[in-house]
Design a protein around this nucleic acid. Sequence first.
DNA 1: TCAAGTACTTACTTTGAAGTAACTAACGAA
DNA 2: TTCGTTAGTTACTTCAAAGTAAGTACTTGA
Lengths: 114, 114
Amino acid sequence: MKTEEKIVEKKYQQAKECPITIFMEQIGGKWKPVIIWLLLSNEVMRFNELDKAIDGISQKMLSQQLKDLEKLNLIDRKSYPVIPPKVEYRLTEKGKSLKEILTIIMNWSNQNLR
Amino acid sequence: MKTEEKIVEKKYQQAKECPITIFMEQIGGKWKPVIIWLLLSNEVMRFNELDKAIDGISQKMLSQQLKDLEKLNLIDRKSYPVIPPKVEYRLTEKGKSLKEILTIIMNWSNQNLR
DNA sequence: TCAAGTACTTACTTTGAAGTAACTAACGAA
DNA sequence: TTCGTTAGTTACTTCAAAGTAAGTACTTGA
């Protein structure tokens, strides 16, 4: 009984600690890579620009994903107290460091997936 | 009216064609990277070995993921007509070519994610 | 004759990510 | 005084991925 509990606990921790799983959970969603990709080639983008640039995303989704990315310290949000509102998003250094990964994924995907 | 239809259609196609999105959809699930990772270091594994090696996966999930990976031509399934059954899984060349990507993801994740 | 071993399948339920649609605040312009 | 603009929020629904639990086939060994 006690043994079984320990095994379950251990398994849970191991699954949580796999770096690839963590990466996929945190950056591997439907929209995050696309947002990062756009910011890699555009430096600064406003909310509406991102909204227009990403086909099919809703404002709710965009706002949510941007919050997530900010929490992960991958993007930087800069808000100006003007009306109508103006908010700028750009990659942090950490965010920019994803370029290599995304590029390599893109190339592999183009060569190997339909 | 006609214009609007065309825009929708175009957006749909664009979203479908993003190579990073395609990659994430096809290889970015919860289990596939882990399976590939294991086969990168083990060359040949049997069903039960994979089952035991992967914490928390169910037989149903494992079987399903292996089928998916086989369809993508990333792994090779070899079944022997013996009893009890014996089935071997190994990476194809295409599967092995994911090593670079997974390694780079792993390193980045270790350095940048919790 | 019954359990053990292997590689699954089937049926059902749960979960969470994503989608949809409408609403909001604040101000300047017409 | 209503409209347009920007960057969101809120409430609700949908759907596919994942989880759970049990069953299956076939044969050997005790």
